[in-house]
């Protein structure tokens, strides 16, 4: 367990600056998710913490000690890669033991720690197999196991679930979170999936084109987004942005919009484009006069207006979001 802090961390590739100064102090045992669209620099930031990329300027400190110049192995970190990066010719046991073997851990202790981790991840039966004989989910567990056995100060996850199918992804994300709580290891987790960020994070860093637009707890970020980008990126379906009656551009989340029957009613007139009933809720897509599409999220039991009918949109002024 350790703290991790980034001080004005910047990264330049040649003349292009891709990370424009990120600051954060991460507490012991905290689970931090870095989320953003592809190309926003989130993976680069993680790789800088791992020591796989050099830090152009600023400082990265683990437990208060500057690690900028240290090799990955000397930083007391463990990393789970997107494609798992398991050694194809080694058995699961050897994959998990490799780091310990290099560190010169005694054989008995290696076996003990690998078996402990294997029990925790329920992969004990696969220890003798080769990675290619495992399913995607099992490989994922082995990659986790390889990180766990090292007992590192910080876990780094680089989109670890992006190669799994949707169902397994939901299950693994719960498991990873639970495991991290049990072990209490400070974690940095990169994803492009805002649902993963919302469900897993203690705090999240929303990255946008190399800037950390907002750092905060998921619900705090959701209800008080700092920028229009954050409001649009976090939440699914995304926040609606539109011009409302001379008051400038505002954002309202789909669940805060409601449909009022009859043309001319409500604060804004629109026509129903189509509706997606999902069971528990229905997403109604409506078209404004200027042609832009908005989404309204309503209860599954509420009546679904027919396509092409004119309706009015209403919302509470408290839910309006404005960005400079």
């Amino acid at each position: 367990m350790a703290t991790l802090s980034l001080r004005d961390v910047k990264k330049r590739f040649g003349k292009t600056e891709v990370i424009h100064g990120v600051n954060i102090d991460i507490e012991e045992g905290e689970f931090i998710v870095i989320v953003g669209p592809s190309g926003c620099g989130k993976s680069t930031l993680l790789r800088m913490v791992a020591g796989l990329e050099t830090v152009t300027s600023g400082e990265i400190a683990i437990d208060g000690a500057r690690v900028n110049e240290k090799e990955p192995m000397d930083r007391d970190i463990a990393m789970v890669f997107q494609n798992y990066a398991l050694y194809p010719h080694m058995s699961v046991f050897d994959n998990m033991a490799y780091g310990l073997k290099i560190a010169g851990t005694p054989k008995g202790e290696i076996a003990e720690r690998v078996e402990q981790a294997a029990d925790l991840l329920q992969i004990r039966d696969f220890l003798a197999r080769k990675p290619r004989e495992l399913s995607g989910g099992q490989r994922q567990r082995v990659a986790m196991g390889r990180a766990i056995v090292r007992k590192p100060a910080v876990f780094l996850f680089d989109e670890p679930l992006s190669n799994l199918d949707a169902k397994l992804r939901v299950q693994m994300r719960l498991e990873i979170r639970q495991l991290q709580r049990e072990l209490g290891v400070t974690s940095l987790y990169v994803t492009h999936d805002q649902v993963e960020a919302m469900t897993m994070a203690d705090r999240m860093i929303v990255m946008n084109a190399g800037h950390a637009d907002q750092i905060g707890a998921p619900l705090e970020v959701y209800s008080n987004p700092a920028t229009e980008f954050v409001a649009g990126f976090i939440g699914s379906p995304p926040t609606n942005f539109f011009e409302a009656g001379g008051r400038g551009r505002i954002g309202v989340r789909p669940e805060h919009l409601s449909i009022v029957e009859g043309a001319g009613a409500g604060q804004l007139g629109a026509t129903v484009a189509n509706a997606e009933p999902l069971g528990a809720e229905t997403l109604v897509h409506v078209r404004l006069e200027n042609g832009s599409l908005l989404t309204v999220r309503q209860d599954g039991a509420a009546p679904i207006p027919a396509e092409g009918t004119g309706i009015g949109l209403a919302w509470d002024g408290r839910h309006e979001m404005r960005f400079g």
């Binding site: 020591g51 796989l52 490799y98 780091g99």
Partner: peptide, 12 residues
């Protein structure tokens, strides 16, 4: 894959 070399680097 580059990740393999990186994993080995992280493993020490």
């Amino acid at each position: 894959p580059d990740e393999l070399a990186e994993a080995a680097r992280v493993d020490g």
